[in-house]
């Protein structure tokens, strides 16, 4: 131990130690794996919970309003395009604006989680 390099020490003088080391190593590896699995599970649940709690009121306001406005905007653009293409003004705009309104409401309800999402695979 005192004179030889550490490599000699483990190879020659103490063959028992090798087995002990292996067993020890295996045990440590198992412990590490179970710890990691625990950590993974926890971080996953933390993230799911955190996504709602960490969201500030301001963030929620921008999120919901952007969803709603986006629906109406798309409806208006589609309606305007439909009208100018087929010359049916103003009916396309009227109908698609209302559909856009409905889509905006659907977006908002989805954003705040009031619509049951399909189970994720």
């Amino acid at each position: 131990m005192s004179n030889g390099p550490p490599r000699d020490d483990s190879e020659n003088t103490e063959p028992d130690r090798d087995i002990f080391d292996d067993r020890e190593l295996q045990a440590r590896r198992d412990r590490l794996a179970s710890n990691l699995a625990k950590l993974r599970k926890r971080s996953k649940s933390e993230e799911e919970g955190g996504s709602t709690s960490a969201r500030s009121g301001w963030g929620l306001a921008v999120k919901v309003s952007s969803e709603f406005i986006a629906g109406i905007t798309v409806g208006a653009i589609l309606g305007f395009g439909f009208d100018s293409y087929f010359g049916t003004s103003p009916w396309g705009l009227i109908v698609l604006l209302m559909l856009g309104f409905a889509a905006g409401v659907l977006n908002v309800l989805r954003a705040v989680g009031k619509v049951a999402e399909p189970p994720k695979l």
């Binding site: 406005i69 986006a70 629906g71 905007t73 798309v74 589609l78 856009g100 889509a103």
Partner: peptide
Amino acid sequence: ISFLSRPIS
């Protein structure tokens, strides 16, 4: 329409 509004929102 809801799908098309996604990139905008």
